[in-house]
Design a protein around this nucleic acid. Structure first.
Lengths: 224, 224
DNA sequence: TATTATAAGTGTTTAAATAACACTTGTCAA
DNA sequence: TTGACAAGTGTTATTTAAACACTTATAATA
C-alpha cells in the first residue's frame, strides 16, 4: 500500500444540511450558489467544514447561519458520506443533516436569502450540484419521507395555525401520494398531537376550515 | 472566536464497529484491549483511524481484520459521534458500524482472538471502555434491536443449520423480551425466508427439533 | 335571492395484522 | 412404564389499516 495514501492526516469533516419546505403542494430544497473554488458557481446544499471547537450539530447550524442567515432551525443527523474522491481538494467526510422550515418562515426568509445567493428549488427541478450533493439530496429526501411520519419533525415543518386539509397536502407532497381524507383526519386526531384553536379560516375551499395548533409537548409518535 | 480553534486541519476520522454475537442466550460484544496510548490497557470496540485511500466501510473492515483477524464480516453504518473532546489526541469524528457473527464462527474465532487481546463480553458485563465507546455501544445495541427485525442481518447472525427454538432464543436475547412460541414460528415461516433441511437435531429439549436453513436469496423484510 | 360550484367535514364496513391462549408429541432418564 | 421436558401445532379475539359516499358552509353567478 502506498505510504502516502495510508496517511490519516490531511483529513477533514463536512457538515451538510438539506433544508426542506413545502409551498403550494411542492416540496422544495434550499440551495446556495458557491462563491469559491472548487465548484465555483455551482449550486450546493448548505454546509461547509467543521471547526475543531464545535460539535457536529453546532457546526452544521453555524454553516446554515453563515450561508443563509437562518437561525433557530431544528436539524437531525441522518447519514455519512465518505467516498475517497468526494472532495477534489482533500479527503473530506460529510456528516449529513436534514432540516425543515415551515411555510410562514419561508416568506420571512425570502428577502434574506436573495442577498446570500440562496434559493428554493422544487425537488424535481434541482440542477446538477457540486461535490456529491445530488447523492446526499436523494438520501435526504428518503429520510424526510421516513421522518415525516414521526411527529417531532412534523411539528417543525408546520406553522402555529393550520387546517387539516393543509396538513394533508404537505404529507401528500412529501410522500408523493394521495391519502384518504377521512382516514387522514382520523389518524391525526387520534394521535392527540393537535388541538382545535376554535378559529376557522378560508383556504382553497369555499367552506371555512377549522384551525388547529400542535400541543405544547408531543413525543415521538408514528403517524403512518 | 479563537483563531486556532477555527482550524479545520488536524482533524481525523475513526471507523468503529460494534461486533455482536449471541451464545447460550447471552448477547455479547467483541472488545479489544488497547496496546498503545491513549487509553493503554483499556478495552475498546474494534476500530481505528481511516486511511485516505479507502472508503469508510473498507476502512472499518480493515481495522476489524487488523485488530481481530476477522474477515468476511457484513457491517452496517448506523451513526456518527463527534463530540469535540471524544479523543484526547486530536479532533476525531467516529463513524460507527455494527456487525454480527454467528455462533458457529464464534467457536472458530476463539483461538485467533486470544492471541490478539480480544474477547467477547456479555453486554451487561462490559467494563468502562476507552474513548466514548461505552456511549457508542449503547447506541449500537439499540440499533441491533432495530435491525434484527429485518431479515438481512438476521441471516448473517445465524449459522447454516438451526432450529426455530434456537432462533427464537436469539431474538429473545437481543430484544430482551419473551416471545410467544406459536406466533414466532408462524411469523418466521410465513415470511418465506427459511426452508426445512429434512434433518432434525436435539438441543435443549428432549424432542428432536426440525432443522432449517436460510434460503439463498432473501430480501429486506420486517420480521416484527 | 336562487342556483351552482367547490372544498370541508363526517361514519361505517371490510380486510389484514397482531396478540392471546392450551393441548399433544417424541425422546431421555429414572 | 412412567414422568419430565422441550418441540410442535390451530383457533379465537383484538387491534389496526384500508376502502368507500354523502352532507355542509361559503362564494360566485345567473
Amino acid at each position: 500500500m502506498d505510504k502516502k495514501n495510508k496517511l490519516y492526516k490531511e483529513q477533514g469533516v463536512h457538515v451538510i444540511t438539506a433544508i426542506f419546505t413545502v409551498e403550494q403542494g411542492i416540496t422544495k430544497v434550499l440551495l446556495v450558489k458557491r462563491k469559491n473554488e472548487p465548484f465555483l458557481g455551482d449550486w450546493i446544499l448548505t454546509g461547509g467544514a467543521l471547526y475543531n471547537n464545535e460539535d457536529l450539530i453546532n457546526g452544521a447550524k453555524r454553516e446554515i447561519f453563515e450561508k443563509t442567515g437562518i437561525k433557530d432551525i431544528e436539524i437531525e443527523q441522518f447519514d455519512v458520506f465518505g467516498k475517497v474522491d468526494r472532495s477534489p481538494v482533500m479527503r473530506m467526510v460529510a456528516v449529513a443533516y436534514i432540516g425543515v422550515i415551515d411555510s410562514n418562515k419561508v416568506q420571512i426568509l425570502r428577502e434574506t436569502l436573495r442577498t446570500s445567493n440562496a434559493d428554493w428549488f422544487p425537488i424535481n427541478k434541482v440542477p446538477p450540484l457540486g461535490y456529491d450533493h445530488n447523492e446526499i439530496l436523494v438520501e435526504a429526501l428518503k429520510e424526510l419521507q421516513k421522518k415525516i411520519v414521526s411527529s417531532t419533525i412534523l411539528k417543525s415543518l408546520f406553522p402555529t395555525c393550520f387546517s387539516l386539509p393543509e396538513l394533508q397536502k404537505v404529507y401528500e407532497a412529501i410522500l408523493d401520494k394521495k391519502l384518504d381524507r377521512r382516514n387522514f383526519r382520523k389518524k391525526i386526531l387520534s394521535l392527540d398531537l393537535v388541538e382545535d384553536t376554535g378559529d376557522t379560516a378560508k383556504f382553497e375551499g369555499k367552506k371555512p376550515a377549522k384551525l388547529y395548533r400542535f400541543k405544547k409537548k408531543i413525543e415521538e409518535k408514528k403517524v403512518f
